[in-house]
C-alpha cells in the first residue's frame, strides 16, 4: 500500500519477556488506514504476545503504542476498546450463555452513554439496528436467538469477529480467524473480511494459514524469534529466502 495513506497505529520497539524467555525483542510496525495487515511467523515466535501487549492484556516491558498519533501505551483493555481497538482472541471468546443478538448488543453497549445512564435506557440502547446490520452482514440471521454456546465452531468464530466490529473500531485485531474453521466456513470468513475491508475497515490479522493470509493481506509482517524479519507484500514475502529459512530452518 502506498505510504501516503494515513497511519492509524504505530507500534514501536515492544519488548516482553517471561522469565528467561524473550517473547518480543523490539518489535515495531505500522498499520495504515484501510489496509489488511497480516502478521505471520513460526509457532511460538511471539505474535499473540505482541497482540496482547498492544491491546493491554499483557504489560510490555518497554516500547510504545500510539493510535492516531496519541500515545496509548499501557492502557487497560477496556480503555483501548473504547479508544477504537477491537479484537478477537486465538481461542474462541463468545459469551456462551447469551444469544447471538445479546452477544452483539453486549459488544456494542460499552460505547453508549455512561455506566449509570445505561441502567435507565431502553434495554437495546438503540443499537438493535446496528446489531441487525452486522447479523445480516455475517449471515447469522437464522441464529440470532440461539445461545452462542450452542453454535458450531465456525459460527462462533464468525460471531466472535462480528463482536469485534460492533463498536465501529478504527482497527480490528484478529488472532487466527481461520484457525480450526472448516473449508466452506473459511471461505465465509474470507469474504466477510474482504467485504468489510472494502467498506473501509482496517484489520491486523495473525494467521497460520498462509494461503488465507496471502489472499487477503495488503502487507505482511513476518516475525521470527521475537523480531521483525521483514515487511512486504504477499509476493515479496513468498519469495524471500529469509522467510523460507525461518520456517524451515532450525
Amino acid at each position: 500500500m502506498s505510504q501516503a495513506r494515513k497511519k492509524v497505529l504505530e507500534v514501536r520497539d515492544i519488548h516482553k519477556s517471561f522469565g528467561f524467555v524473550k517473547a518480543n525483542r523490539g518489535i515495531s510496525f505500522d498499520v495504515y488506514e484501510g489496509e489488511i495487515l497480516g502478521v505471520i511467523g513460526p509457532n511460538g515466535c511471539g505474535k499473540t504476545t505482541l497482540f496482547n501487549c498492544i491491546l493491554g492484556q499483557l504489560k510490555a516491558d518497554s516500547g510504545t503504542v500510539s493510535l492516531n498519533g496519541q500515545d496509548v501505551t499501557g492502557q487497560k483493555p477496556a480503555q483501548l476498546a473504547k479508544a477504537g481497538l477491537g479484537r478477537t482472541f486465538q481461542l474462541l471468546q463468545v459469551f456462551d450463555s447469551m444469544t447471538v443478538e445479546e452477544n452483539l448488543l453486549t459488544a456494542a453497549q460499552a460505547h453508549v452513554g455512561s455506566i449509570f445512564s445505561r441502567l435507565f435506557m431502553q434495554p437495546d440502547l438503540g443499537k438493535m439496528d446496528d446489531v441487525n446490520r452486522v447479523i445480516e452482514a455475517f449471515r447469522l440471521g437464522h441464529l440470532a436467538k440461539e445461545d452462542a454456546g450452542s453454535l458450531s465452531y465456525g459460527q462462533q468464530k464468525l460471531l466472535d469477529i462480528a463482536m469485534g466490529l460492533m463498536s465501529n473500531p478504527q482497527i480490528v485485531f484478529l488472532d487466527e480467524p481461520a484457525g480450526g474453521v472448516n473449508l466452506s466456513m473459511l471461505a465465509d470468513v474470507k469474504s466477510r473480511l474482504l467485504e468489510l475491508n472494502e467498506a473501509g475497515m482496517t484489520f491486523a490479522v495473525i494467521e497460520h494459514n498462509m494461503e488465507f493470509i496471502f489472499e487477503v493481506a495488503d502487507r505482511i509482517v513476518v516475525i521470527a524469534e521475537g523480531e521483525v524479519l521483514m515487511v512486504g507484500t504477499a509476493d515479496e514475502v513468498r519469495n524471500d529466502p529469509k522467510v523460507i529459512e525461518a520456517y524451515l530452518g532450525h
Binding site: 491491546l55 463468545v94 448488543l105 453497549q109 440502547l125
Partner: peptide, 20 residues
C-alpha cells in the same frame, strides 16, 4: 444493559474487558 454486562462478566471477563 447491566444484566448483559453481568452475564458477560460471568461467561468471560477477559472478553468483556476487551469489548470495553
Amino acid at each position: 444493559p447491566w444484566g448483559r454486562a453481568f452475564k458477560a462478566l460471568k461467561d468471560n471477563p477477559n472478553r468483556a474487558e476487551s469489548l470495553g
